[in-house]
């Protein structure tokens, strides 16, 4: 009985040993920033294992965060490019509609003033409540 049990154990354990040794020998001499990061990632992996539902939730959260946003300076920077100066193909005839693109230089001008912080930017209520 005992002999056969030992044999079974040995049979099961034997293949495991060389494998472990293999990993040990292979990875140790090659440690550099890359493998370090990889090791860290694999270490963290089990902790962040998530279900499909959770995964979808996270993806949706990121979608909301990943909105297309532009700051004022960037938008104004695009105002002068040729594509932005073209006349829209469909533009109703109307007194407020201009036949040619108007000068948008004031945008940059304001920006300079803006950054200077000296602009008299006062919004006020004219009517007493």
């Amino acid at each position: 009985m005992e002999v056969s049990r030992r044999r079974i154990l040995q049979k099961h354990l034997e293949p495991a040993r060389p494998l472990r040794r293999c990993i040990h020998v292979d990875t140790e001499p090659k440690i550099n920033a890359g493998t370090c990061a990889q090791a860290l990632m694999t270490e963290e992996d089990p902790e962040t294992t998530i279900g499909i539902e959770q995964f979808c939730k996270i993806v949706n959260l990121h979608k909301q965060k990943g909105r297309i946003s532009y700051n004022r300076d960037f938008l104004i920077g695009l105002a002068s490019c040729p594509e932005a100066r073209k006349k829209p193909q469909f533009l109703p005839e109307h007194p407020i509609v201009l036949m040619e693109a108007r000068d948008l230089a004031h945008l940059k001008l304001h920006e300079m003033k803006w950054n200077g912080g000296k602009e008299d930017m006062v919004a006020e209520r004219l009517h007493s409540p």
Partner: peptide, 13 residues
Amino acid sequence: VEQFWRFYSHMIR
């Protein structure tokens, strides 16, 4: 953004 500017620059302020 470009399409916005096209309209915006063709409208009075």
